[in-house]
């Protein structure tokens, strides 16, 4: 029993890692007022890029920056479309998802079924990993897990406790007034979309070179969509996203755990979406201003328009 619990916690942390990375990225992006539905696609691109680079060079640590660069590049499409060209963000984001899934499938074709010789090793944190029970579950994990938590906390601090954070949040709330205070709204939005893309690509890299060590087309398996749901579930707060991501990660693990007991995995797979729906309902009943939803999320902003 003890072992089952420990291994459940451990797998929960693993399953929550990509969710947390992608959610943090999406929160930053949405806080600046840009809705990016392309997370799933960017994640797939990140996964395949990290995999190919790691496989060719044998260096997982080269796969990570490569994935980040790829995430940056494909997110630039969404940034140009939604900020410069003022296109509909839903359409552009969906297009990015399709593009990313298709492109990653094509790029990864020659690599299907070829496992990595070296994958990213788990790291044991000295002393802490020796703690009984939780030591192994929490402190002997993939570097991506630590990175995800550190990035989420940094993002929270950045958004809530720095000048730039105020500027980013103001941009999502009222770009016109923000521009009027001498802030470059377009620049901020570009930066946030691109950072969001980099985070999503990191989530993908975790899947292909740390979590598993092989590439399968469609291996993101809807995690990008869950990240978008998590953004709402966490009420656009990266600190809250940490807890939310691991709860959702736990549901992932439970799917397999409870299957032998006759509970349909489909029911559990539904839970993240169901709980997000409930949160959305609660938002619509409550005054949305008390929650953190950015007021101008997804709205096109044209300079100089009244």
């Amino acid at each position: 029993m003890e072992e089952i619990i420990i291994s459940t916690i451990q797998r929960t942390m693993v399953a929550g890692t990509p969710l947390l990375l992608a959610t943090t990225g999406e929160i930053i992006c949405e806080r600046a007022g840009i809705l990016n539905l392309g997370v799933e696609g960017v994640m797939a691109i990140g996964a395949v890029t990290a995999f190919i680079v790691t496989m060719t060079t044998g260096q997982p640590w080269l796969g990570v920056p490569a994935a980040m660069a790829a995430g940056f590049a494909v997110s630039l499409i969404h940034a140009v479309a939604s900020v410069t060209l003022q296109a509909n963000q839903v359409v552009s984001g969906l297009a990015l998802t399709m593009l990313g899934l298709g492109l990653s499938g094509m790029m990864g074709k020659p690599y299907v079924g070829r496992p990595l010789a070296v994958k990213m090793d788990d790291v044991a944190i000295p002393f802490l990993s020796d703690l009984p029970w939780i030591g192994k579950a929490l402190f002997h994990q993939s570097p991506f897990l630590y990175l995800a938590i550190v990035l989420a906390l940094t993002a929270w601090f950045f958004l809530e406790r720095t000048r730039m954070g105020i500027q980013i949040r103001s941009t999502g709330e009222n770009p016109k007034a923000t521009e009027n205070q001498g802030v470059n709204v377009a620049l901020i939005r570009y930066a946030c979309v691109l950072v969001g893309g980099i985070f999503s690509a990191l989530a993908g890299a975790h899947l292909s070179i740390s979590y598993s060590s092989s590439w399968v087309e469609g291996m993101t398996a809807g995690r990008g969509w869950i990240a978008i749901a998590l953004t709402i579930f966490a009420l656009w707060n990266p600190a809250r996203a940490i807890f939310a991501s691991f709860i959702f990660g736990g549901i992932f693990v439970l799917q397999y755990l409870l299957q032998p007991l006759g509970i349909s995995p489909n029911f559990l797979a539904m839970l993240p979406y169901l709980s997000t729906l409930i949160i959305l309902l609660a938002i619509s009943f409550k005054d949305p201003r008390r929650l953190n939803a950015p007021a101008r999320l997804g709205a096109v902003y044209k300079r100089g328009e009244r």
Binding site: T162, R163, M164, I166, Q167, R169, S170, E173, N174, K176, A177, T178, N180, Q181, G182, V183, R289, N292, A295
Partner: peptide, 21 residues
């Protein structure tokens, strides 16, 4: 030209030219 959802102090910080980082 105010951000309705933000607090007074955040609004002032947004417009103030010497706001610390």
């Amino acid at each position: 030209m105010l951000i309705q959802n933000h607090s007074v102090i955040e609004n002032i910080a947004l417009g103030y030219k010497d706001t610390p980082f």
